[in-house]
Write a protein that binds this DNA or RNA. Structure first.
Lengths: 352, 352
DNA sequence: CTGAAAGCGCTTACAG
DNA sequence: CTGAAAGCGCTTACAG
């Protein structure tokens, strides 16, 4: 499989490679006749210009990277896949190249953030799943390469934060639980290091305060977005506080853990315990009569992140924050609080 | 951000670019002193060699592509993500470049399979999720570029099929159901076009035959791996055949649909109906007391596919098929058939 | 141990 | 409308 190059096409067509290049790139200054001939030969030779060489030849290259932190993760919530798809789509539409980058492997190659960008010839980058304590985070903020960062605060030139109103969404979710008569509402938070966790907690608190509800401090615990931790904590909470009738979870995976725990303790969902998730992961609609949750669209997020990066690449001045919409989805894991004559709880704890 | 090139490093170090190149690539014929100086300068200038230029400069380039069919999909079963991660890991280990390719977007750009490979300078490619009727399929089989194809028959030089023993796995799964006393076992198949569907069906039939069980033909239906179709078909089957006590599903997503349908009809899982899935998707362990299923590891599959491609790239002669292990995981959605004194079924159909 | 030079496959002023 | 030539940032025989 000898590689057929632009030279072969040129020789075959009896023209210079300059002309072939221009014909293929749709320049207007090539006669229809030669253009047609060249196209015919391209077809026949099954020629395709080498993307590498092309990038090297021209001044301006448009390549957008997606930087994720790890590959060992399971992507249970489908975020990585969603972001990837959305960004890839944007790249296709804007005729940009796409490249996937993984911090853990690049860092192990001892590359700095700038080196990473230069090595890959990036014109822009979308970053997701980075922790604020990641070495790349600071470097990134300092560099002036166009960056869109998903769900993390940014600052500086050519930086943009793609996010949704986590506070409002959470408040709305908890207010829905309140509207169903719930008063003893626990919260399973994510990680205290994650921006979104803090905001979702704020929304939870906001809803309680607005309705003059006071919940014990230990109604709230952090489960690192882990199903297993959520499971443990729910068991503990339900034993300690049998009066709890609802859980607001900062992720669907944690909601799954909460439900599993509740069920195991003999509590019905949603009859005894309502569980509200967050994310609307792909399986959310299919399990346990459907998980009630806050919908967000990772595909859309990836796409919009790419769009803002692309705009920065064009030299546009962009807003420092892009806020995407959300909506509450009520499915089968939330319902009205059980009326008093049914008893409040059947827990073994019995403490109230 | 002026790009610092090898020239800048050379000038700074007072040596030729040849020497810089060799120092950076770990050639032994560079004095320790100059090597150290160069490294110091690289550090200071935050220099990183341009991967594109590097690829162009050297004869042998090692770039492996992952070709998937579509990006609109949800990846509910985590296959794409798993394959991606596994292959990326292999690329990291073998110092290969990785690139993601999507048939639907490449085809819309009117590129042939060979053009696709040339454009991206691929030395090898891993293909997944392609249908046998995809235009690329035939082209691929004809080309002699190293290809590993996941779950699809291959033939020819430098072609390898990565798969598992779908027949044996399915047979084992169904035999487990039989061992639990089930006799009326329905099957929810995938697509009649998918290789794996046919094999899983064969395993199902094999188990029944081995145990002299005869099930009506319409116990088997095809649901295209869709939760929704599985849900519909399960409802239909359960009404038509209330004697059914178990479902073998060719994917976990379909198992989810089957469970949802059974539950809605008032059947308990696994007390009334056992449901066996296939795939062990990420959430399988967390829902409904855990889905019983056949475990396969998409990450491993992607990794092994990459490995065999890499070996072909090295000129090795490889086996035409790589068969990966599986194992049955029994969790909460399967159990012994309900003993006769409890009645066989409580269905509204009542026909037996 | 080091450097000058050719080459990888393109693009793009520039000249005609 | 077309072509010769320089250049993109590297690598790699080859010569010393």
């Amino acid at each position: 499989m000898k590689k057929v190059s632009i030279k072969d096409v040129a020789r075959e067509a009896g023209v210079s490679i300059t002309t072939v290049s221009r014909a293929l790139n749709g320049y207007p200054d090539v006669s229809e006749k030669t253009k047609a001939r060249i196209e015919e030969i391209v077809e026949r030779l099954d020629y395709a210009p080498d993307a590498n060489a092309r990038a090297m030849g021209s001044k301006e290259t448009t390549k957008i990277g997606l930087l994720i932190s790890s590959l060992m993760s399971k992507d249970e919530n489908g975020f990585i896949h969603g972001h990837l798809c959305g960004l890839y789509r944007l790249c296709t539409e804007c005729d940009c190249e796409f490249v996937l980058l993984v911090t853990e492997t690049e860092q192990q190659k001892m590359l700095s953030f700038r080196q990473l960008c230069k090595k890959n010839n990036l014109s822009g980058i979308v970053v997701t799943g980075l922790r604020t304590n990641d070495p790349y985070y600071e470097e990134m903020m300092k560099s002036d390469i166009p960056c869109a960062v998903i769900d993390m605060e940014t600052s500086g030139k050519n930086k943009c934060n793609i996010t949704m109103n986590n506070i409002a969404a959470s408040q709305e979710a908890v207010e829905y639980l309140i509207s169903q008569g719930h008063r003893n509402i626990a919260m399973l938070g994510g990680s205290e290091l994650a921006d979104v966790s803090i905001k979702r907690y704020a929304g939870y608190m906001g809803a309680l305060i607005d309705h003059d509800i006071v919940c014990p401090k230990d109604y709230v615990c952090h489960c690192d977005f882990l199903e297993s931790k959520a499971y443990e904590e729910t068991k503990r909470l339900l034993r300690l506080h049998p009066e709890i009738t609802a859980f607001f979870c900062a992720s669907d995976m944690m909601a799954l853990g909460a439900i599993r725990a509740a069920l195991e303790l003999g509590r019905q969902v949603p009859e005894d315990i309502s569980v509200m998730g967050y994310d609307d992961i792909p399986v959310a609609q299919y399990v346990y009569n459907g998980l009630s949750t806050v919908h967000q669209d990772p595909n859309r997020i990836g796409y919009e992140a790419g769009r803002v990066v692309y705009r920065m690449m064009q030299g546009e001045e962009v807003e420092s924050k892009v806020v995407l919409p959300y909506h509450l989805i009520i499915r089968g894991t939330t319902g009205p609080v059980r009326s008093p004559d049914h008893g409040n709880a059947t827990a073994e704890g019995g403490k109230s």
